[in-house]
Each structure stands twice: as structure tokens, then as C-alpha cells.
Amino acid sequence: MKISKQNAEHYVWGGLCDGWHLVKQDGLSVIHERMQAGASEVRHYHERARQFFFMLAGTATLEIDGVPVVLGPSDGVEVPPLTPHQMLGSTVEAVEFLVISSPTTRGDRVTG
């Protein structure tokens, strides 16, 4: 079945941001996310999941284990399990990106 933002399961996080589950399986998760200008997520890590972040639109900074990585359209970066990270959205524009996780991050997120 063809999937897109228009027909995918949608959720809101952080009060300002959107996510669409493009693939939602135990072994693989693909989420299209949109962060409003000025939004950021909480610093966290995953015990099992390996993630790949791929920017679709805009520019954001993904802090990985204390090192800022600036991502623009068509840039991607991998985050291994047990590695603290935090997506920091742009202060001037909304950004859109894919988050690909294997296995799923459900129940695997540790904050602090």
C-alpha cells in the first residue's frame, strides 16, 4: 500500500511538532517528522535502537554525544544505540526529516 503524510498515522509531540508513521513495525520504524521553528526535542538515548536521521527540508542541528552536526536538505547521519542525542530545530523555519529506527524505539527511550 502506498503511504504518505496524507494517509499515515499522525501524532503531535512537544506541543508544536508533528510525526507521521510511514512504517510502524517491531523491527523497523520510519517516521516523517516536522518541527516548528524554535522547537527541539529532549536529550535522550535508546538502549537497543539504531537511528538514521535524514533531512528533507530546512536546516537543523542534531547534537550527538555533545557534538553538534548541522544537517541540511539531503543530509543524513546515523546515531548508534546508547548514544545521547537531541534534535534542535531551526529558530527561523520549520524543518522536516525522516527518522529511521531499527528496531522500533517504542519503550526504548531513556531521558536524562
Rank of each mutant, 00 (worst) to 15 (best):
G19V: 01
H32M: 10
I3G: 11
E41Q: 09
A39E: 14
Q36R: 04
T59L: 04
L62W: 11
N7F: 14
V69Q: 06
G19S: 02
K24H: 15
T111R: 11
T91A: 04
D65M: 06
H10I: 07
G72L: 06
E41M: 02
E63T: 15
Q25H: 09
Y45L: 13
L88C: 15
L16I: 00
G72D: 02
S74C: 02
L56N: 12
G76L: 03
V42E: 11
G19I: 00
D26V: 09
F97E: 06
W20A: 00
P80E: 06
D108Y: 00
Y11Q: 08
F52E: 11
L16Q: 07
V110G: 07
G27F: 02
T104H: 05
H44Q: 14
S101M: 05
A57Q: 15
D26M: 10
K24I: 00
L56D: 00
E9I: 08
G72H: 03
V12F: 03
C17E: 06
P73F: 01
E47P: 00
V95Y: 03
I31M: 14
T59E: 10
M35D: 13
E9C: 04
G66H: 06
G14C: 02
P80M: 11
L22S: 08
L98T: 13
E78K: 03
A60M: 09
T61D: 05
K24T: 00
A8W: 08
Q86T: 07
L56I: 11
G112N: 09
G14I: 01
S40I: 01
R50W: 14
S102T: 12
